[in-house]
Amino acid sequence: MTRRQYVLFALLIGVVAPALLLAVGWWQVDGPGAKPKTAPLPLAISEMDFSLSDHEGNPVGPATLIGRPSMVFFGFTFCPDICPTTLADISGWLNLLGADADSMNTVFITVDPARDTAAAMAEYVSYFHPAIRGWTGPDAEIAKAAADFRVKFERVPTEGNGYTMNHTASVFLFDATGRFVSTIDYHEPREVAVPKIRRAFGQQNEVQG
């Protein structure tokens, strides 16, 4: 090895290789090769803090959800596609659960309280399974609830002065103590969804299921 070859070799080991490693590392962690970041998990219900009203005007909050398993999701009634589909899916799951549907809380929290008043929520949920409760409230309390559930939402203007809402569409399951159990994602088949709901009931119901 000549002196010149030696210098080149040293450069390769000392400079080029670390630079290459750094580049690969960036690509995998922060760059285009990064794995998609999954959504953060909701808090336990006992750690949540918000005050809303249900579609009949009753005051509700995290304490309302303690004592029975809970299924909670966020949406808005001016949503033509994903929200009615999710509500229809949930109604189907509740039908399959039979009597258990009345032994749990199923709550639809609006991310659009400006349009989704208690009256609007009442009319909307009346078309779905009777166990589904609609919750609404002041912007600040909706924001606190969304933050506790780690739900994102955003108002997006549409053509002609209207707006739509981008929002987390997952369904969250909690056990009777308020511990987070699992998420049901959009379009999961009922064969997957219903056993997940039964798991929120605990061991004794899993045998039946």
Binding site: A39, N166, T183
Partner: peptide, 14 residues
């Protein structure tokens, strides 16, 4: 024609 899409964080948009 609109499209609903849901990203890896579960956020749906249209």
């Amino acid at each position: 024609i609109h499209q609903t899409s849901t990203n890896e964080q579960g956020v749906s948009s249209m």
